[in-house]
Simulated assay, not measured.
Amino acid sequence: MKLRQTLFATAIACLASTAALAQTVSVFKDAGCGCCGAWVEHMRQNGFTVEASNISPEQMNALKAKAGITAATASCHTAFVEGYVIEGHVPAGDVARLIEEKPEAVGLSVPGMPIGSPGMEFGTPEAYQVLLMDRSGTTTVFAEH
């Protein structure tokens, strides 16, 4: 009986995790940016449905401003999932954790384009942080890689 309860609890946890990954991520990027395309593939390979749109730099700047992205949190592409903003090369696992935990926040950001982050897998990887952006404009560390 105990084994059956454990298996049932594990199955429920897996279904909840899969449900989070079934969400559609809407990505806005520059058509010529290869690292953005690589991040889109990273998300797809990790179970997310991704809709990618190429937009002009002017449209991107307006989108980022409207989403609350600042110079300190900006990267090359901006995505949206479950009401959250995902800025830059955020790992799929961190996006899944955000969706699961549902914090009061604007979303996640990996500022800049750190080598070794998803979509930037070339050269010598560097340590980087995933920042949780709150509505007041401040950030806290959500994860370190």
Results as ranks from 00 to 15, higher is better:
V90K: 09
A105T: 03
A74H: 05
V85E: 07
G37N: 11
V110P: 01
H89V: 13
A65D: 04
P114H: 05
E58F: 08
L98T: 00
A79Y: 01
L132E: 01
A96Q: 07
I99E: 10
M120Q: 12
G83P: 00
N46G: 09
A62T: 12
T124N: 11
I55F: 15
M43W: 03
V40H: 08
V85T: 12
L63G: 09
E100Y: 03
C35H: 04
M60Q: 05
L98M: 10
E126A: 14
V85G: 14
S56P: 10
A92T: 09
P103I: 03
P111W: 01
Q129H: 05
G68L: 02
L63M: 13
H42L: 11
G88F: 06
G47D: 02
L98C: 08
P57W: 10
S53M: 10
A74M: 11
P91S: 10
R97Q: 10
E51W: 10
R44Q: 13
E58I: 09
V110A: 09
S117Y: 12
M43A: 00
I99F: 01
P91C: 12
A79V: 02
L63N: 06
E41W: 05
M43F: 02
G107F: 01
D94E: 12
A105F: 03
A71K: 13
S109D: 02
A127V: 06
S109A: 13
P118D: 00
D94G: 08
C76T: 01
K64N: 13
Q45T: 06
M113I: 02
V110M: 11
E104Y: 07
K102I: 01
I86Q: 06
F122D: 15
K64H: 09
G47R: 04
A105P: 04
G123W: 00
V90I: 08
G83H: 00
T78L: 14
V40Q: 06
L98S: 06
G34E: 02
A96M: 05
A62E: 11
N46F: 11
G37P: 13
P111Y: 02
E58C: 06
V81W: 04
Q129E: 14
S53K: 05
A71S: 14
L108Q: 04
A92K: 12
L108F: 10
K64D: 05
Y84R: 11
P118K: 00
F48L: 03
C36F: 04
A72T: 02
V85L: 12
P114Y: 08
V106W: 00
E101Y: 11
S117R: 15
G123P: 10
G116V: 04
V50D: 11
G112D: 07
M60C: 07
S53F: 09
T49A: 05
I115R: 12
V81A: 06
E121C: 15
E82G: 03
